[in-house]
């Protein structure tokens, strides 16, 4: 009963076989260059499918599963109807992920332009933006002035963003809850630049990529976080120079903290006081938990850099 006779299937299979190619390439009947008038070319129902005219809610569903770059360089430029959908449906641009794209440098200008289009099409409804490398201060400001609804911002290794750029942009992000700055190397204190936007941050990830042993203690960033980010549930400070004092300040002030990652913060020494204060943290990553690439004794001379010289050159 569930398997009725499929009268047309044999014909259809034969047609695929005749072409000897992937069944996908041709079967719009009117456009078939070889057998334009053979009605049995299309199988089920005897009619070819008009992909351009598929129901708009179904097409919306398909577009919703594509990322911004795929719509901007492919599906959104196929035909009038599809372009119209890509242009006029702001919901497609609520979450824009332009990270993890292989052609990193060559298309920087293009990605910059694409990000601006995505922001425009979201028409003030963008909630999440994520990008790698190509974002500049200008672009960040552009997003900030047009997407004040943004809740989540992920910037992965963006060397063209400055502290000043962050400070300017943050003024526009009044609803930001999640901020990730991976592999960043800013000349200054990011949390200070975040300013008032820090008040409602729920998740803050600042990953300085390389923490090292014997770097000078600096708790400025930690104190800023402690005093200005009271709502934090998740904090990731990787490779930061904070000491026990800074971490205690954070634990004492950010009372909602559930997840804490201080990997490669080698100035933090886990003593009894810290251990007891950390007891309430559900997910905890300690300074040496991620030392996959350094497995020798930290007191080993090989890891004792001339750190003062390094920091002098930074400022």
């Amino acid at each position: 009963m569930l398997q009725p006779a499929r009268e047309n299937e044999g014909v259809w299979r034969l047609s695929v076989w005749c072409f000897g190619v992937d069944a996908g390439v041709q079967f719009s009947r009117c456009e078939n260059p070889i057998f334009p008038l053979i009605p049995s070319m299309a199988q089920d129902g005897g009619e070819s499918r008009d992909w351009a005219e598929m129901p708009s809610d179904a097409l919306s569903g398909v577009f919703g599963k594509l990322n911004a770059s795929d719509i901007l360089t492919g599906a959104g430029l196929v035909c009038r109807v599809w372009r119209q959908l890509a242009t006029n449906d702001p919901t497609l641009w609520r979450r824009v992920d332009m990270s993890c794209q292989a052609d990193l440098v060559e298309n920087m200008k293009a990605k910059y332009a694409m990000a601006r289009i995505a922001v425009n099409r979201a028409a003030g409804t963008m909630e999440a933006f994520s990008a790698e490398y190509f974002v500049t201060d200008d672009l960040l400001l552009y997003i900030s002035t047009r997407a004040s609804s943004l809740k989540s911002l992920h910037l992965i290794y963006c060397p063209y963003i400055s502290i000043k750029g962050i400070a300017e942009a943050m003024k526009g992000f009044t609803q930001l809850e999640e901020l990730t700055l991976y592999l960043s190397s800013f000349h200054g204190y990011v949390s200070e630049a975040i300013g008032r936007a820090g008040q409602q941050l729920i998740c803050f990830r600042l990953n300085n990529a390389f923490g090292y042993y014997n770097c000078p203690v600096d708790d400025t960033e930690a104190f800023w976080i402690a005093n200005n980010m009271p709502e934090l549930r998740e904090l990731q400070l990787i490779g930061n120079r904070l000491s026990n004092d800074g971490l205690i300040a954070i634990l004492d002030h950010c009372l909602r903290l559930e997840s804490l990652d201080v990997s490669r913060c080698y100035n933090v020494q886990m003593d009894d006081v810290l251990k007891s204060k950390c007891a309430r943290i559900r997910d905890l990553m300690l300074p040496r938990d991620q030392d996959v690439f350094i497995d020798s004794d930290p007191s080993d001379e090989g890891y004792s850099y001339d750190t003062d010289a390094m920091y002098d050159s930074e400022y």
Partner: peptide
Amino acid sequence: KSASEIRVKLGIR
């Protein structure tokens, strides 16, 4: 896929 690749694949004009 680029727009033209999609057009060819789906037979869209």
